[in-house]
Simulated assay, not measured.
Amino acid sequence: MRIGIAGIAGRMGRLLAEEVQAAGAILSGGTLRPGSRAEPPAGLPIQPDAAALFAASDIVIDFTHAEEAVPHAELAARSATPLVLGSSGLSAAQERAVAEAAQLVPVVHAANFAPGVNLVLALAEKLAAALPAEAYDAEIVEMHHRQKVDAPSGTALAMGRAVAAGRGTTLEAAGMESGRDGHTGARRTGSIGFAALRGGQVVGEHTLLFAAATEHIAITHRSFDRRSYAVGAVRAAQWIIGRRPGLYSMMDVLGMR
């Protein structure tokens, strides 16, 4: 299996390169982000552009940036090369474009590729189904390193969507309460709250809290090493080969649905 990595000189790109080789796959090469000053890992093949990377690969892993998600998904569709997409912060329009490309080629897109996070998402949906929104307010608190540019994080939003799904609705319909400041009025029943913290070099911390008048239930996941994301992404790359076109998630990769 020839696996290509978009943005191979970045922090995630380097980890992905290590995990691809550890899995016994062939590293077909990588691309560098335009304007990046990062040096690629020594001895690894660098492709001149994304089109060349897709042409040289059986599958491509992309953890670069939301702005690259759509062009890479379109390249995947045109070249019939499966894509593992880990970029977060996609807009609704970008998500629709990725879904359209997935009609022609298999795509695994996940907000977080760590197996533990996906187990928490599954548990969040089950808890939300059992704890009525009228009695249990759902709040999500996340913290990341100071360089992260999107908030709430993709994983936090995935938690919110899991809660909404458990309650038989969508995050948009339930309503998001984020960035509260000043006299905001009372909390809306059934809405899902978000708080984003940024500082230092925290890899990722997410807490889902169900708060009722008589009890609180909290589930926390902490990532201490980005390697867990790389391990999960390579696992997804091995899983997706031979699949039919479609938009898959890490839940599918883990056999949880």
Rank of each mutant, 00 (worst) to 15 (best):
L123Y: 14
G168Y: 08
A124F: 02
V149D: 12
R146I: 09
R146A: 14
A174F: 09
M159T: 05
M159C: 11
A165M: 13
E142F: 07
L119S: 08
V149R: 14
K148P: 04
G166N: 05
A135Y: 03
E125N: 01
T155K: 03
L131Y: 07
A174P: 09
K148E: 15
H145D: 14
E142S: 15
V120N: 01
A151D: 06
R167D: 11
E134V: 08
P152F: 03
A138P: 03
G166E: 03
L131V: 09
P152C: 06
L127T: 01
I140D: 00
T169N: 12
Y136M: 09
T170F: 15
L121P: 01
R161E: 15
E142A: 11
A158N: 07
A138H: 08
A174L: 10
L121C: 08
G168W: 13
P132A: 08
A162C: 14
L127M: 10
E139T: 02
A122E: 14
V149W: 10
S153N: 04
H145N: 11
V163E: 07
V141W: 05
G166R: 01
E134K: 12
A124V: 06
I140F: 03
I140N: 01
A130K: 12
A133L: 08
G175L: 13
T155A: 11
A156M: 04
G168I: 03
D150A: 12
D150Y: 12
E142V: 04
T155L: 07
E125D: 03
M159S: 02
L127D: 06
V163K: 04
A164R: 06
G154N: 11
P152N: 04
H144W: 13
K126L: 15
R146D: 13
M159E: 01
V120C: 07
Y136F: 15
L123C: 14
A174C: 10
A135M: 04
R161Y: 12
A164T: 05
I140S: 00
L119G: 06
E142M: 05
A124W: 01
T155R: 00
G160I: 00
T169Y: 14
L127Q: 12
K126V: 11
T169V: 12
R146Q: 14
A158G: 07
H144M: 13
A165N: 10
